[in-house]
Nucleic acid binder design. Structure first.
Length: 287
DNA sequence: CCGTTAACCTGAGAGC
DNA sequence: TGCTCTCAGGTTAACG
């Protein structure tokens, strides 16, 4: 569930529930996530009070007292579930993303708070947890990331400057987190379609107008996606409640062989691989 | 520096 | 019912 809008949805829903709550206990059922959870992890975050929930790029961050932090990355398949304890022992699952039903398998980390618990589920285990003991440490760690696309500083002049002398293709550029942080495969495809730019076009070949469109549509797509609750793909379980709806707005992603949605365009969406990632394009619109 | 590939994992869906 | 194959919202090291 992992691009910027989806993590933002988790952040927004989580902060309604956990601010000023303490982590009473921690249960690790499987420490072998992308990076192995350290043995002292439980001791580090146990009894800590959560002051803030933050997001940076595709990372979710819990800030504790005394400037200590827990960083969570969801990888490809991580989800967070809030399970309410009811008096009669039944449970309600307020899934923050994707599924209303708590999966039975792959619950790897459980944070118990006062009246509920947070369950981290991740079938593929590409996600990870990382604890930071100071603001300086987490800032150093996050410094490798580029600008937030929704930041005001992400504008034409900024983008033009960092693209200068790059011979990368534009799609790989958008996906490279050290330049712009938070865009993943779905939104890169959508942004390029809306900007009418071929994913293989070299950044140094982009015209000013195309750079302006990239800025405009990056912000627009991500904002709308957040407004729609993110994208929920491959979700065949959920029937009610908290799923994202942006998947219904996809213009190119996962639309191979379907017609281009632009008026007067008779092009068909084609799919090919770029650096091992599915890339969708209308070759009539995207030059 | 650049693009690609493989690796890290499990599961869903397609096709047979 | 079941097998095999491909693909998946991410990241990163290694290679040519």
């Amino acid at each position: 569930m992992p691009e910027l809008p989806e993590v933002e949805i988790v952040k927004q829903s989580l902060e309604k529930r956990v601010i000023n709550k303490s982590i009473n206990s921690v249960l690790i059922k499987n420490k072998n996530l992308r990076y192995k959870i350290q043995d002292n992890f439980i001791a580090k975050i146990r009894k800590k009070k959560i002051l803030k929930v933050l997001r940076r790029s595709k990372y979710l961050i819990l800030e504790f007292e005394k400037e200590q932090f827990l960083l969570i990355h969801f990888g490809m398949s991580g989800t967070l579930h809030l399970i309410n304890k009811k008096k009669n022992n039944s449970k309600t699952n307020l899934s923050f993303y994707n599924s209303q039903i708590l999966p039975k398998k792959h619950n790897h980390v459980i944070l118990k708070l006062q009246n509920f618990k947070l369950v981290y589920n991740d079938p593929r285990r590409f996600g990870f947890f990382k604890y930071f003991s100071s603001k300086e440490n987490i800032e150093n760690y996050l410094d490798k990331l580029g600008i937030e696309p929704l930041d005001k500083r992400f504008n034409f002049f900024f983008l033009k400057r960092i693209m200068l002398n790059k011979s990368k293709n534009i799609k790989n550029f958008l996906l490279d987190q050290k330049y712009i942080a938070g865009i993943g495969n779905i939104y890169a495809n959508e942004i390029l379609y809306l900007s009418k730019i071929n994913p293989q076009k070299k950044t140094y070949n982009l015209k000013d107008n195309e750079i302006k469109n990239l800025i405009k549509f990056s912000k627009r797509v991500l904002r709308i996606a957040i407004k729609k609750g993110g994208s929920s793909i491959r979700n065949f379980v959920n029937t009610k409640g908290k799923t994202g709806l942006f998947q219904n707005e996809f213009k190119v992603y996962d639309r191979e062989t379907k017609y281009c949605l632009r008026k007067l365009c008779k092009g068909k969406i084609k799919r090919f691989f770029l650096s091992n990632r599915s890339t969708f394009v209308c070759s009539y619109c995207q030059k």
